[in-house]
């Protein structure tokens, strides 16, 4: 029987799932992903976690618990940084150790160490991740290459304008309607940590809600890295968190571009980096009169109805602005 590797549907699942899945499948393992987040999963995580922390960390605990008796290994990499000159928040580097400390009975954790801040992804990390399934470094490397190809395609699909969530669905073989065929009248940029924005439980289904309001969604994954760097050039110190940089870079880019009508920044309550970066985005958005802006700080007590009301008000505001702009345009035209 194939070795079963468990991947929690949390955190970087929303960024790397296609890469990880292809890699392990190529090496003959069976990949098992936990079910989409539910209240039940959340509660399980909350019970185990020690201390007070952000929603995503509580959620990953819940997902790990539901996976524990279904798999031979859990894949929880020890991520210090996933790209050059940037870090992830400190929680990521400690996660495998914290899980092990709090729940000693878990299946063995594949806690491959990734610190690509200085040298990029090393062959050693890749071998480390794959050696349980195949001892042959060449085959491991080939599996990695294949995974990279698949991942590149995944990223390209997102650049074409579908959300990462949909791109993952497409990767898993589901039907995703192409962007061109959609009827969309509003343009809204949605920024924040991917695992908060794309997990429907965390974001209270915001993407679906926006779609119902006929909005086209723009995310940070849809713009190239250079544009993101360009966006934050004005800051006196470069933002050194990967997702923080993407969030602020994308927010700044979209605020300055003429593409969008509104910007929504989703934050999970008690998120360390976002607690500071929100101030920076708020500041910039306040000075921009053309784009409607709203930040949503979400925790486990946030209700869906509250979000609905705020979204309605937000869309109403955009429409009003459009009308007045049109009127101005007509006046000037005369």
């Amino acid at each position: 029987m194939a070795i079963r590797v468990g991947i929690p549907r949390a955190l970087l699942y929303y960024r790397f799932y296609p890469l990880w899945k292809t890699f392990f499948t190529e090496l003959g393992a069976e990949v098992i992903v936990s079910e989409p987040t539910t209240q039940e999963i959340f509660r399980k995580g909350l019970k185990k976690f020690i201390g007070d922390t952000c929603l995503p960390m509580k959620l990953v605990f819940g997902h790990v618990i539901t996976l524990a008796d279904k798999v031979d290994y859990l894949f929880i990499p020890r991520l210090v940084s996933i790209e050059k000159d940037t870090y992830l928040c400190p929680h990521f580097a400690g996660l495998p150790d914290v899980l092990r400390a709090i729940m000693p009975d878990l299946p063995p954790i594949l806690d491959t160490y990734f610190n690509v801040r200085k040298k990029g992804v090393t062959m050693r990390s890749i071998y480390e991740a794959g050696k349980r399934f195949d001892k042959n470094p060449r085959r491991i490397y080939l599996a990695y290459q294949k995974a990279q190809e698949v991942y590149k395609k995944f990223l390209e699909r997102i650049r074409d304008g579908i959300t990462p969530q949909e791109a993952i669905q497409a990767f898993d073989g589901e039907e995703v309607p192409p962007v061109k065929e959609r009827k969309e009248r509003l343009n809204i940029a949605l920024v924040g940590n991917p695992y908060t924005v794309y997990d429907p439980f965390s974001s209270l289904n915001i993407i679906q809600k926006l779609r119902k309001l006929e909005a086209r969604i723009y995310t940070s994954e849809m713009i190239p890295d250079e544009t993101i760097e360009e966006g934050i050039r004005a800051l006196s110190k470069r933002i050194y968190w990967t997702f923080g940089k993407e969030t602020v870079g994308a927010a700044f880019h979209y605020l300055d571009s003429k593409e969008i009508d509104g910007l929504i920044y989703i934050i999970s309550f008690e998120c360390g980096p976002d607690s500071l970066l929100k101030e920076i985005v708020d500041d910039k958005a306040r000075k921009n009169k053309k784009v409607a802006y709203m930040s949503l700080v979400i925790d486990e007590h946030t209700g869906e109805t509250g979000i609905d009301t705020r979204l309605d008000a937000f869309v109403e505001m955009i429409k009003r602005r459009r009308r007045s702009k049109k009127m101005e345009g007509e006046k000037n035209g005369k």
Binding site: F49, I50, G51, D52, T53, M57, C89, P90, H91, A93, G94, D97, V98, R100, A101, I102, P104, E270, G272, S275
Partner: peptide
């Protein structure tokens, strides 16, 4: 409150306390 590295520490200290039998009081 919300200190990231110390939340990690808190989780791990819960194990240290059990293993080494030392009382720990966390003040947030």
């Amino acid at each position: 409150f919300t200190c990231l590295p110390e939340i990690v520490a808190q989780g791990i200290l819960s194990k240290v306390r059990k293993d080494l039998g030392i009382p720990i009081l966390t003040l947030v």
